[in-house]
Simulated scan of single mutants.
Amino acid sequence: MRIWLVVGLALAAGAAQAHDFWIQPQAFAVEAGGATAITLQVGDGAERQRSSIPRRRIVRFEALTPDGTVRDLAGALTLGASGGDTAARFEAPGAHVLVLATDADGRSRLPAEKFNAYLVEEGLIPALEARKRAGRSEREGSERYRRAAKAIVQVDDGEGAAMRPAGLPLEIVPLAWPRTEAGRLPVRVLFEGKALAGALVKLTELTELTELAGGAGPQASRRTDAAGEAVFAAPSAGAWRLSVVWTKPLGPDADADFETTFATLSFGVSAPWPGACGRRTAGARRPGGRRP
């Protein structure tokens, strides 16, 4: 009975609202001194589009350089402009990390079945169990939410800032970058600065650097272990996005049931990693609807 309940919820997830949001450089690799246009994207497959998030909700937009310098990019945002939401120039060799954080003023409210389905789809089983303990499984669910996104832009060679935490409320940190462990991409998920166990991390391929594979779901998903770590097969050449969602219950006087953080890490691989496997695993379509 329990198995069929989970299956039914997963099938119903198509009506929930959990689209990924990510930073999309036009190029994930540039020469020293080179620049690239950058857009903020939201959606999946054919539903991908430029994000319409308002400027007032963005509380942090920076570039972390290989030597540890932090460059504030918020003043250069041109949201909705035809040439992109901003552009950035990268001088020093190594990996630079673009970092964006929003406030938690996003709001979502769903009927019970759709909200429960969304929790299953994103692997948020503790939240599902919390609703059950509180006797709220048959009631609508509400959350306030925020975004935490990173993108790696590679300038020539070197790790740079790629493997350093950025201090986001929820983030995915590569443990090997680049090619330091043949055939593997190990990552750690941090929530409020601590290793997060039991989080569902998804790996999705991006095509032509600017668009998601039409209609495709994640190529792979892994749940983090007690150390907050998950290991993927090293992706082949191309552009990729890792994503994770986590939520925590709020008190009875709060304006929502949960506070949720959606986090992504987008990056490019310029050549196949040693031992990389080209096979793709089938992925279910992500929930429908979209959040800015």
Rank of each mutant, 00 (worst) to 15 (best):
A271Y: 08
R188K: 11
C277A: 15
W4H: 09
D72C: 03
Y118S: 03
E113K: 13
E143K: 02
L209N: 13
G275H: 15
P165D: 03
T281P: 02
R133F: 10
F267C: 12
V42I: 08
M1N: 04
V59I: 15
L64M: 05
A271W: 06
R109T: 09
G183W: 04
D85G: 11
E122Q: 10
A29I: 04
W177E: 09
A239Q: 00
A263V: 01
L242E: 02
G283E: 10
E192I: 01
L128H: 14
W4S: 15
T260V: 06
V173I: 04
D85R: 09
F267R: 07
T78W: 04
T261P: 05
R50E: 05
S236C: 14
L168P: 06
S266E: 07
P126Y: 00
A233L: 09
G198M: 10
L9D: 11
G238D: 08
A37Y: 00
S142D: 08
A16W: 04
L100P: 14
G14P: 01
A151V: 11
S82C: 01
R279G: 03
V70S: 05
S236Y: 00
A63Y: 05
V201N: 06
A112K: 07
T224H: 11
I3H: 14
A12M: 12
F90I: 07
F21Q: 08
K132F: 01
E159T: 12
D253I: 06
G167T: 02
G289K: 06
S221F: 13
T36H: 05
A197H: 09
A161N: 00
L250T: 10
P292K: 13
I172P: 03
G68S: 02
P93D: 05
L185K: 00
L203W: 00
R131C: 05
E91C: 03
A27F: 11
G167E: 07
A29W: 10
I152L: 02
N116D: 13
T281G: 15
L9Y: 10
L250C: 03
T247R: 08
F267S: 04
A112P: 09
T78G: 00
D156G: 05
L110R: 05
E62S: 11
G8H: 11
R184P: 04
L265Q: 11
D67L: 01
P272D: 07
G167W: 00
D85E: 15
V155L: 06
L212T: 09
H96D: 06
A134W: 10
V201L: 07
A12C: 08
L77T: 11
T36D: 09
A239T: 14
L209D: 15
A282V: 14
L98F: 04
L79I: 07
R179L: 14
A220M: 14
K150A: 07
P235Q: 15
H96Q: 03
R136G: 10
F115G: 07
S243T: 04
V231H: 04
T260A: 13
G283R: 01
G14T: 09
A197T: 02
E181V: 14
E171D: 02
D253S: 12
R223D: 00
G288M: 10
A216M: 12
P174D: 01
T102H: 08
G8C: 08
T102I: 02
